[in-house]
Amino acid sequence: MPRFMVLVKATADSEAGVMPTEELLAAMGAYNEELVKAGIMQAGEGLHPSSKGARVRFSGKERTVTDGPFAETKELVAGFWMWKCKSLAEAIEWVKKCPNPMPGPSEIEIRQVFEAEDFGAEFTPELREQEERLRKEIEKR
Rank of each mutant, 00 (worst) to 15 (best):
T21L: 04
T21S: 15
I110F: 00
M19Y: 10
E129M: 01
E131H: 13
S51W: 06
D118C: 04
P125V: 00
P125E: 00
L7N: 08
K61A: 11
A78H: 00
E75Y: 08
G104M: 03
S59G: 10
M82N: 09
M41T: 02
R57K: 14
T11A: 09
S106K: 03
Y31M: 09
E131A: 14
A43P: 10
N100T: 05
S59M: 09
M41D: 01
D67G: 10
S50H: 04
E131T: 09
M1H: 10
A54E: 03
L134V: 07
V18T: 15
E107V: 12
A27R: 08
F123E: 00
T73V: 15
E45G: 15
S87Q: 01
L47S: 05
M102A: 15
R111I: 03
E34L: 10
G68V: 03
L7A: 13
A54V: 01
L76P: 06
E93N: 15
P49H: 11
S50A: 06
W94R: 01
T11V: 10
K52M: 12
T66A: 13
A30P: 03
K136S: 13
E107L: 14
K140P: 07
E22G: 12
L88F: 15
G60H: 05
V77M: 12
N32K: 05
L47T: 05
A30F: 04
G120W: 02
E72I: 08
P103H: 01
S59N: 11
E75A: 15
S106D: 12
K61R: 09
E34C: 07
